[in-house]
Computed example of a mutant assay.
Amino acid sequence: MKLLVSAMETSSNVHLAELKKHLSDDIELLGIFDKKLGNPNYDIEQLAIMGFVDALKRLPFFFKLKDEMVELAKDVDKVLLMDSSGFNLPLAKAIKKKYPNKEIIYYILPQAWAWKKGRIPKIETYCDKLCSILPFEKDYYSKKEKITYVGHPLLDEIKDYKTTASTSNKIAFMPGSRKNEIINLMPIFKKLIKSIPNKEYILIIPAKFDEEYIKTIYGDISEFTISTNAHESLKQSDYAFICSGTATLEAALIGTPFTLSYIAKKLDYFIGSRLVKLPAVGLANIFFSKMGKELIHSEFLQEKVTVENLLNDYKKMNTNKFMENSKVLREYLKFGSSKNVAHIIQN
């Protein structure tokens, strides 16, 4: 079988690597993905975009890329789209228009339940099988026969979970992966550790960052122990301070209590707060609200991200209650995502 893949994000390729373990050896991958996973027509490193202006400059490239992917679709058996709806939805539309009978599978669906619900009819029209990683996502779709809840991929990718609250004397810090996130949070984290003495402070940095970039963006980090392994470091830590994002869900699943803090550009926050109507920012909190439960962790946004607020939250955290909530979350999301998607692709 030939499978055309469009996986443009680093996170998508982590999910693709896990999925590949469950695919038959005779399935050939074509298209856009990490070169570590095969022989892509385009490696994801070629697609890195640093900002809005850069994206505009590269629009002609992406239009050309879409046309080339449509051409590749002619000779494949099925198409697998992963996340990146800005590119993948127009690609799905173009492929379906040219090859109406070509099966298109979407794994890691656009978060249309959070905002831009108008995309849902398009997703249902252009795609044949929808692999949902959120238990409540199906409720937003009208064509129920197309969508299947497969479980959450993080549960398969995290290899070790806590069963009891840890006492390692380590605290993890994850200021994000984007430049502005790091610049905004690191000064606060550096002040915070002065108020939490006699601990080992683990600073988790994306492995892709080189030494010069780290020095420029993070500044003096001599008081921190550096790690590039988020899952292992979170497992070893008693507590974590984390920027918003997937990392908060990883910590919640692993069982490491944490505080979410996020500072966005004022204009971005203003626009986002009006477009997205959700009870919380953190994914674990969103899931708990869907279950009708109390939120699992605190969230501090914008001017509320202060040393005092973060320190107070750290001191009052009920670690045993958090551990029990972590187990509830694992049960809610379900294991087996990659295996289930592989079965859908191969049948």
Results as ranks from 00 to 15, higher is better:
Ser337Val: 04
Ala240Leu: 07
Asp25Gln: 15
Ser222Phe: 05
Leu3Ser: 00
Val5Glu: 00
Ile158Leu: 03
Pro187Ile: 01
Gly255Gln: 03
Ser233His: 02
Tyr213Ile: 09
Phe63Met: 13
Ile193Trp: 10
Lys122Gly: 15
Arg119Leu: 11
Asp160Thr: 14
Asp43Glu: 13
Thr306Gly: 06
Asn180Arg: 13
Tyr218Phe: 14
Thr248Ile: 07
Phe87Trp: 12
Glu308Lys: 13
Lys235Cys: 13
Ser222Glu: 12
Pro121Glu: 02
Ser166Asp: 10
Ser195Cys: 12
Leu253Asp: 00
Arg274Val: 07
His152Ile: 12
Leu3Gln: 00
Glu250Arg: 05
Leu16Met: 03
Gly336Phe: 02
Gly282Cys: 04
Phe288Ala: 05
Ala94Ile: 10
Phe322Thr: 08
Pro153Cys: 03
Ala17Val: 09
Lys339Val: 10
Leu19Asp: 08
Ala284Val: 02
Asp25Ser: 15
Asn184His: 13
Ser222Lys: 12
Ser227His: 05
Gly336Tyr: 04
Leu275Met: 10
Glu103Tyr: 05
Leu192Cys: 06
Tyr126Met: 10
Glu71Asp: 11
Ala284Phe: 02
His152Arg: 09
Asn101Leu: 05
Ile204Val: 10
Glu331Gln: 12
Ala48Tyr: 14
Ala112Leu: 04
Glu71Ile: 07
Arg274His: 14
Lys98Cys: 07
Asn39Phe: 11
Tyr140Ala: 06
Gln111His: 14
Asp25Arg: 15
Ala172Tyr: 01
Lys116Phe: 07
Gln46Met: 15
Leu295Trp: 06
Lys265Ile: 13
Asn340Phe: 05
Cys243Trp: 04
Ala73Glu: 01
Leu59Asn: 11
Asn325Pro: 08
Pro153Asn: 04
Ile193Ala: 04
Ser261Val: 11
Asn229Gly: 07
Ser195Phe: 15
Ile44Gln: 06
